[in-house]
Computed example of a mutant assay.
Amino acid sequence: MAPERWLHPVAEPTVVTGTALEVGDDELLLAVARGDQAAFAALYDSVGPLVHGVVRRVVRDPAQSEEVTQEVMVEVWRTAVRFDPDRGSARTWVLTMAHRRAIDRVRSEQSSRNRTQRVADQQHARDFDEVSERVELDFEYEQVRTALSTLTELQRQAVELAYYQGYTYREVADLLGTPLGTIKTRMRDGLIRLRDALGVAG
C-alpha cells in the first residue's frame, strides 16, 4: 500500500479532467506545477509505488524507506514547476529525484554511524591510555620502592624528604639532626645507587 499522501492546500486549484489512467504522468506533473491537488493525488497513485521501490532498494530499512518516499513526494509537489517535458519524462524526473534522496539518506546515516564510532573509539583509546598509564606508574613506583630499599636508612630518608616531600637539603639536615655536609654526601651517594638500581644511564 502506498504511503499516506502529503497534500498542500492551494488557492483555486486547476482541475485536470479524467483519471490517472486517462491522463499521462507528464500531464499530471504539469498540472501539479499549477497547484492542482487532484493531479497530485493521481500522480502519487501512479508513481508512488515506483518511488518506494527505488528508495527501498537503496535504503533497505523499511521505516526509513517510507520516510524518504514521503520526502520525495513532498519535493515533487514543491518543485514540480521545474519539470521540463522536453528534457525527459515525468516518471524519469521523479525517480531520479527518488534515487538522489535515497543516496543522501544512506550517506547521512553512514556519516552518523561514523561519528558515533569515532566517539566510541576515542573513549576506548582514552580508557586504554588511562589503564596503560596507571600500569606504567604502578610499575615505576614498584621499581623505585625496590631501589629505595637498597639504600642505607639515612640515604633513604634524605632522598624521600628531598625528592618526594619537597624539603631543601638544609631542611632535611635539620629534620634528621645531621650536618648539612653529611646530608649532601649521603644524597649524592644515594642518588648514584638509585640510578644504578633503576638502570638509568649516568
Results as ranks from 00 to 15, higher is better:
Arg87Thr: 13
Arg87Gln: 13
Gly88Glu: 06
Ser89Cys: 01
Arg91Gly: 02
Thr92Asp: 12
Trp93Val: 06
Val94Glu: 06
Val94Cys: 00
Leu95Asn: 02
Leu95Trp: 05
Leu95Gly: 01
Leu95Phe: 07
Thr96Cys: 03
Met97Leu: 15
His99Trp: 04
Arg100Ile: 01
Arg101Ile: 07
Arg101His: 13
Ala102Tyr: 10
Ala102Arg: 12
Ile103Asp: 04
Ile103Arg: 15
Arg105Pro: 02
Arg105Gly: 03
Arg107Thr: 07
Arg107Phe: 00
Ser108Ala: 05
Glu109Lys: 13
Glu109Asp: 11
Glu109Trp: 11
Ser111Arg: 14
Ser111Tyr: 07
Ser111Thr: 11
Ser112Arg: 15
Ser112Gly: 07
Arg113Lys: 10
Arg113Met: 09
Asn114Tyr: 02
Asn114Phe: 01
Asn114Arg: 05
Arg115Lys: 10
Gln117Asp: 10
Gln117Pro: 00
Gln117Phe: 06
Arg118His: 10
Arg118Phe: 08
Val119Phe: 12
Val119Gln: 11
Val119Leu: 13
Ala120Pro: 03
Asp121Leu: 00
Asp121Ser: 04
Gln122His: 04
Gln122Thr: 02
His124Val: 12
His124Gln: 14
Ala125Thr: 07
Ala125Pro: 09
Ala125Val: 05
Arg126Leu: 04
Arg126Thr: 02
Arg126Ser: 07
Asp127Thr: 01
Asp127Leu: 13
Asp127Asn: 04
Phe128Trp: 11
Phe128Glu: 12
Asp129Arg: 14
Asp129Glu: 14
Asp129Ala: 15
Asp129Trp: 07
Asp129Ile: 11
Val131Asn: 03
Ser132Tyr: 09
Ser132Thr: 14
Ser132Asp: 10
Glu133Tyr: 14
Arg134Thr: 12
Val135Phe: 00
Val135Asp: 11
Leu137Lys: 15
Leu137Asn: 13
Asp138Met: 10
Phe139Trp: 14
Glu140Asn: 11
Glu140Leu: 10
Tyr141Val: 00
Glu142Ile: 01
Gln143Asn: 13
Val144Gln: 05
Val144Tyr: 10
Val144His: 06
Arg145Met: 12
Thr146Ser: 12
Ser149Gly: 02
Ser149Thr: 09
Thr150Glu: 15
Leu151Asn: 00
Thr152Glu: 10
Gln155Gly: 02
Gln155Cys: 07
Arg156Met: 09
Arg156His: 08
Gln157Glu: 15
Gln157Gly: 03
Ala158Arg: 05
Glu160Met: 11
Leu161Arg: 13
Leu161Asn: 07
Leu161Thr: 10
Ala162Lys: 14
Ala162Cys: 13
Ala162His: 12
Ala162Glu: 05
Tyr163Lys: 09
Tyr163Thr: 09
Tyr163Phe: 10
Tyr164Lys: 08
Gln165Val: 03
Tyr167Ile: 01
Thr168Glu: 10
Tyr169Glu: 13
Arg170Asn: 09
Arg170Pro: 04
Arg170Ala: 12
Glu171Gly: 03
Glu171Pro: 08
Val172His: 01
Val172Leu: 01
Ala173Ile: 00
Ala173Asn: 08
Ala173Glu: 02
Ala173Trp: 00
Asp174Gln: 14
Leu175Tyr: 11
Leu176Glu: 03
Leu176Phe: 08
Gly177Asp: 00
Gly177Ala: 00
Thr178Asn: 09
Thr178Gln: 04
Thr178Gly: 00
Pro179Val: 09
Leu180Tyr: 12
